[in-house]
Design a protein around this nucleic acid. Sequence first.
DNA 1: TAATTTTGGAGAGTAGTACTATCCAATCGA
DNA 2: TCGATTGGATAGTACTACTCTCCAAAATTA
Lengths: 220, 220
Amino acid sequence: MRISELARHSGVPVATIKFYLREGLLPKGEATSATRAEYTGAHLRRLRLVRALVEVGDLPLSRVRAVLRVVDDPATDLHRALGTLHYAVADDPPAPEDDPGWDAARRRTDDLLAGLGWRVTDHAPDRRRLTRAVAAMAELGRPVDDGALRAYAAAAHTAAEHDVARIGPGDTREEVLEYAVLVSALMEQAMTALHRLAREDVSATRFAAPGERGERERGG
Amino acid sequence: MRISELARHSGVPVATIKFYLREGLLPKGEATSATRAEYTGAHLRRLRLVRALVEVGDLPLSRVRAVLRVVDDPATDLHRALGTLHYAVADDPPAPEDDPGWDAARRRTDDLLAGLGWRVTDHAPDRRRLTRAVAAMAELGRPVDDGALRAYAAAAHTAAEHDVARIGPGDTREEVLEYAVLVSALMEQAMTALHRLAREDVSATRFAAPGERGERERGG
DNA sequence: TAATTTTGGAGAGTAGTACTATCCAATCGA
DNA sequence: TCGATTGGATAGTACTACTCTCCAAAATTA
């Protein structure tokens, strides 16, 4: 496959493919001469993955690059690679120093995770992400109570079990890692969308002017 | 309060506050002379809200502006304002034309939502967001099955019920709307973080090398 | 064989976002 | 009185993600 065909099959402009090649987001094709290189189905697949992560998953290219580095490094074993992947997909927001509100929020999230017995490392970026959200809610006068937090955690865990259950025992290392990336970036978007749609439903049911649209039989 | 005090209390540089004033993200203070304006606690609160939406909620300023327009418009009733808010927080991704995969995904998400009986409008941006994720998973060879989708929906609905339950009957229109914004932007981040942490836990439990770290008693 | 097109490679240019810096005259506070 | 502060305006910056242009070599077509 030549670069123009790669472009045609993927819908990505040649200029962008060249840019991705320069940026190391797509491996070079095999050069057959000074002005020709051959691209394979693997290139097309990788290109589609990059586009999905960028367009659907909304990852910046730097994060995509980090993710692909992990997927392509055969040196680390599967378990370790999966761990590293979680760090590559999420960015680590800086923690403010000297903020008592932040320290309190951090303690609460740590306690929550410890209480649930989740196997997550101390320096997982998403710990901070969660802390940041909890701290911001409190700072703006709408603190999140433990019940809501635990309900969120239970809901998230249910979804996560479905995510991991779809990995077959016969899947290769690369298949597992690629799937993990896809779930982290794309299913996350699905969850966000469903959460907001569900909120629309619940608040519509509660705040709808009487008589507006028919009653609903059953919820979620 | 003068602009420098507003800056000190919020931690936001004066230059940035001026920029927000220009951009209409923060209402002007009451001018007491040609070179002095008075800012109130409401300004500080609004400034903190803007920063939280930008920093924690990761909303672009254009979206923040749209959100605040809805919150500040007293003309629309609460129910309608809540509906509009969901559209202001989420951006509407463009739908590709002539993509059979997309049409199939769209039918699936429509069926899912209809089957659940959720009260969401046909043109909710998050419908498309969900469709996009489902279509992308299928296109990359990892289609999402209905069971997983329904599990996601159930989990999202549980979280949403907690979100809406925290609105008190005595809350003013502005309080309700501001809370809705906060939940849409910040609790969404909390859910995402928990979802990823849960996935880390589940995959650690499944893929950990034997003997690595102690066994866990109970999951989420 | 000649003319046209395509390619890889490199560099510069562009559009959008979110600030940040500078300047100014008026005016406030010590 | 005089340095600091303010509102208002304009310009500049850093970053991201492309997009465009150019080139000579090679491939394709006439």
